[in-house]
Nucleic acid binder design. Structure first.
Length: 285
DNA sequence: AATGCGGCCAACCGCTGCCAT
DNA sequence: TATGGCAGCGGTTGGCCGCAT
């Protein structure tokens, strides 16, 4: 049985919100929180459906909404994340504080997509269609393409992490603390979680430990606790899913470092363009 | 000044996944 | 385990606005 529609009842207003409605909704939520969206309109005295109220609050009335044009940095982040995640606007929005999925979706559709198409730059080309020599990947579903991209980025990040760890071990852990890896932040954020959720559904053979995990394996617990990189820029994913390297246990390290080697082979066919994460990790030199 | 056109964006629609029962 | 209700998500639409003619 289908669900009863929530927005086609008589007496339910549609269309643009009036300032009065905005005020009623905002004040109600400030006082009581949104609670159940379904019952909110009645309790707040609004002739709107719950969905409409939710959307209005999330996209317009929320106090932490960031207004104004997207910065170049935000643009770069959107492009990179879209390359990895596709049209998963909510996941992308979770990495851009103050921006809503709707806003990002509109911005992508009206600005970035066109710009990438026009410029035909490498990222745009990568995003909009894989190069001909990647036909195997191209023929796969978008989610597989994005998985491949995620995996590639992760392998690169692990390589970096491995090098950093080894050098940090040699240097008494003096450098690692100041080198948060943005990809790994992402990996441990909501976005990374959503990707891991996808890969969980795939039959993945347990991999041998990577170089990086070997580095950890050779550390004593004390060393590990001292050398855990710190996240101090506060930009990682929000709430509970954010980057928690400081709390890593052995199992968490395994989660981070074990890679499904059965899935790596296909990555070699991707063609090694310059790391598409450059704008994120800031190390393109 | 009037009209047409295209871009932008807020809001709606319908599907999906999660959770409670 | 199956079912139904809900919130959340992504795609789409429609109206407004600015610009060109």
């Amino acid at each position: 049985m289908g669900r009863a529609p929530c927005c086609d009842k008589d007496g339910v207003r549609k269309g643009a919100w009036t300032p009065e409605e905005d005020q009623v909704l905002a004040e109600y939520i400030k006082k009581h929180g949104h609670g159940s969206w379904r019952t909110l309109p009645k309790q707040a005295g609004l002739l709107r459906c719950g969905k409409s109220c939710r959307l209005r609050w999330i996209n317009y009335l929320r106090p932490d909404i960031k207004r104004g044009p997207f910065t170049a940095e935000e643009e770069g982040t959107i492009i990179q994340l879209h390359g990895m995640l596709g049209n998963r606007w909510a996941a992308i929005a979770s990495q851009l504080p103050g921006r809503t999925d709707n806003e990002i979706k509109n911005f992508w559709n009206t600005h970035l997509k066109k710009r990438l198409l026009r410029s035909g730059n490498s990222l745009g080309a990568q995003e909009l269609s894989f190069s001909p020599d990647q036909s195997d990947v191209k023929s796969e579903s978008p989610s597989l393409r994005h998985m491949a991209q995620w995996e590639k980025a992760r392998v690169e990040a692990e390589t970096r992490l491995s090098m950093e760890l080894e050098s940090s071990l040699l240097n008494s852990c003096s450098t690692t603390n100041s080198l948060p890896d943005h990809f790994l932040q992402l990996w441990h954020s909501d976005v990374g979680q959503s990707f891991r959720d996808i890969t969980k559904k795939e039959p993945v053979s347990q991999s041998p430990t990577s170089q990086a995990s070997s580095a950890f394996a050779n550390m004593t617990q004390e060393q590990a606790s001292i050398c855990q990189p710190k996240l101090d820029d506060g930009t990682a994913g929000s709430e509970s899913d954010s980057y928690k390297f400081l709390d890593t246990s052995d199992s968490a390290l395994k989660l981070l470092l074990d890679m499904p080697d059965g899935n790596i082979g296909f990555l070699e066919g991707l063609g090694q363009t310059e790391s598409f994460l450059c704008p994120l990790n800031g190390r393109c030199d």
